[in-house]
């Protein structure tokens, strides 16, 4: 290294020490990040690009001789496909009803349990059970032991209550209701646990101050609890929406999308088209549509979070 001839701040001639030091740190960071990022690109980004490319092709595993580039034909077909619009509708109904049910029930239960002096631990443990289970196993248990006509517990209760036996999963008007109930059953504990944790973290003294100010319990809830809980509620809504939009295993196990297309959400349609009917190209276009649908809903939710 050449010695600086003057004592002035060196301008040229030697490397900036801050850059050198940061450069070493950056290189180290890059070395640590690279394997994970390569893996992520290989397993998420690359397949996504591949998907987009495939969606511009006709690709039919049953009739490979017809394969070839078709441009936007798949998308054009999709816009005129009544089954696509029906799947989109089912997805919307499924997502909104399950999310609203989870948040309302979860919040109600969290408020209830938060007020308990004893027994909270029991609720916390029980709430873990559905959440950690595989949706496929949950679906299987409900499909068989709970909902089978003249065998399952739900059907038994319905008959005992004088409502009669029903084909819970075979009747198109009941099937969607049933899968919504199953999803809500499995994931309400999630909302419950998150909201209970947020409730428990609220400062006690605010409520004491409110009580001194003679606020009624209802007023306390509306004016204090809800506003303070709002970020947690919004977070739960966003997370549950994302999961509901990607739900697959439970419906696949319980109804397979049926009867007919009564419970066929977009996920299931894309899957059935690709792997049952083997129209991979069209299935890819459906998956892209699903991705766009997910992005739009996510965008709306994040905009809502920022608003107010």
């Amino acid at each position: 290294m050449t010695k600086a001839t003057t004592l002035d701040v060196p301008v040229g001639g030697r490397a900036d020490p801050a850059r050198m030091m940061e450069g070493r740190e950056r290189r180290f960071a890059a070395a640590l990040l690279a394997p994970a990022f390569i893996a992520l690109m290989a397993t998420t980004t690359f397949p996504l690009l591949h998907l987009g490319w495939t969606s511009l092709h006709r690709m039919d595993l049953a009739m490979p001789f017809m394969d070839g580039f078709v441009g936007l034909d798949n998308y054009r077909e999709l816009l005129g496909d009544p089954r696509f619009w029906s799947a989109l509708g089912v997805s919307l109904v499924y997502t909104f009803s399950t999310v609203i049910l989870q948040v309302v029930l979860g919040l109600a239960l969290a408020l209830l349990v938060n007020g308990m002096k004893r027994g909270q631990a029991l609720f916390r443990i029980v709430a873990i059970l559905p959440v950690v289970l595989s949706p496929a196993v949950v679906g299987m248990v409900w499909r068989t032991f709970m909902l089978t006509p003249e065998f399952g517990v739900v059907d038994y209760l319905s008959m005992t209550a004088g409502l009669g036996s029903h084909n819970w999963l075979g009747d198109p008007s009941l099937a969607l209701f049933s899968v919504v109930v199953i999803h809500t059953w499995q994931w309400t504990p999630f909302a419950f646990m998150v909201l209970l944790a947020s409730l428990a973290a609220l400062p006690e003294d605010i409520y004491e101050a409110a009580r001194i100010d003679r606020a009624s319990p209802w007023l306390c809830f509306v004016r204090i609890t809800l506003p303070l809980l709002r970020p947690a509620i919004v977070m739960v809504i966003i997370m549950r929406t994302m999961v509901a939009l990607t739900a697959f295993a439970a419906i696949f196990t319980v109804t397979g999308g049926g009867p007919g297309t009564a419970t066929e959400i977009l996920n299931l349609y894309a899957y059935r088209k690709s792997f049952t009917e083997l129209s991979i190209g069209y299935g890819s276009a459906l998956a892209v549509a699903l991705l766009i649908f997910t992005l739009v809903i996510t965008g709306v939710l994040f905009a809502l979070r920022r608003a107010k």
């Binding site: 397993t43 998420t44 690359f46 397949p47 996504l48 591949h50 998907l51 495939t54 994302m242 939009l245 990607t246 697959f248 996920n267 894309a270 899957y271 690709s274 991979i280 299935g283 890819s284 998956a287 892209v288 699903l290 991705l291 997910t294 992005l295 996510t298």
Partner: peptide
């Protein structure tokens, strides 16, 4: 956030 169905096809 990617839907798994979108990844499994490719």
């Amino acid at each position: 956030m990617l839907p798994p169905v979108g990844i499994i096809i490719p």
